[in-house]
């Protein structure tokens, strides 16, 4: 267990459907090694997003256990899980999810402030420079292109130097060129920070760069490399 920073044991997830319980995930057992890059792929509706939601402690499984750094997060309530995430977990989303009312700088400052970082502004500025947006600090999300928005999101995700970064289709809303830049950025920062990266993607190029690949179908892991 100690080899894994994140581990799922016998995880099932069911939701209430119109005609009774609907199984989204079934018998999931997996471990994520520290500093590794893992991709979860599969067709739409196979349960990819649900799985990273559970691994990140955003939701609870119907059955089974999930451990983060040896702590059973499935035994914690929602607020305890939130506190555990602060400063240790980062996210990058397909829709970027930048706060519209905040500038690029303020968006990156946000998780740093939540993690009570003393020099949030300075760190955020450095991270934005690192992702190539040093000239766009005070731009609002609407004033940025999709690729730029995702770079802000990546800076935000890495800003707290998390142990694990979850990325849900990070290139899904981008054109080929922007996607390629984001891919490069993501893996270079992951290597630099020795962060465990958990990716959900349809992008084969992105998947090929991960050491570990899982394929989900109908809520089960059908392939592991």
């Amino acid at each position: 267990m100690s080899d894994f920073i994140l581990q799922a044991v016998g995880v099932d997830r069911e939701v209430e459907g119109p005609s009774g319980p609907l199984t989204i995930l079934q018998d999931i057992d997996l471990g994520i090694a520290a500093g590794s890059a893992t991709v979860i792929s599969g067709p739409s509706g196979s349960g990819k997003s649900t799985l990273i939601g559970l691994l990140a402690g955003l939701d609870l499984p119907t059955r089974g256990q999930i451990f983060f750094r040896g702590n059973e997060i499935t035994a914690l309530d929602e607020d305890q899980r939130a506190r555990l995430r602060a400063g240790q977990v980062g996210f990058v989303f397909q829709s970027f999810y930048l706060m519209e009312s905040l500038t690029a700088l303020e968006n990156v400052m946000l998780p740093l402030e939540l993690a009570a970082a003393a020099d949030a502004r300075l760190q955020a500025r450095q991270w934005l420079c690192e992702v190539g947006l040093g000239q766009r600090l005070h731009h609002y999300p609407r004033q940025l292109s999709g690729g730029e928005q995702q770079r802000v999101a990546i800076a935000r995700g890495f800003a707290v130097e998390p142990a694990v970064l979850f990325a849900d289709e990070p290139t899904g809303n981008l054109d080929r060129e922007a996607a390629s830049q984001i891919k490069e950025l993501l893996f270079s920062l992951q290597a630099e920070q020795n962060t465990s990266l958990v990716l959900v993607t349809h992008d084969l190029g992105l998947a090929e760069q991960c050491q570990r690949r899982l394929r989900l179908e109908n809520g089960r892991i059908v392939e592991q490399h």
């Binding site: 929602e78 305890q80 946000l110 998780p111 939540l114 993690a115």
Partner: peptide, 15 residues
């Protein structure tokens, strides 16, 4: 709501 969900992701509790 979305901002709150994000804050919760980043580790803010309900209080």
């Amino acid at each position: 709501r979305t901002n709150v969900a994000l804050l919760r992701c980043f580790g803010a509790d309900r209080a």
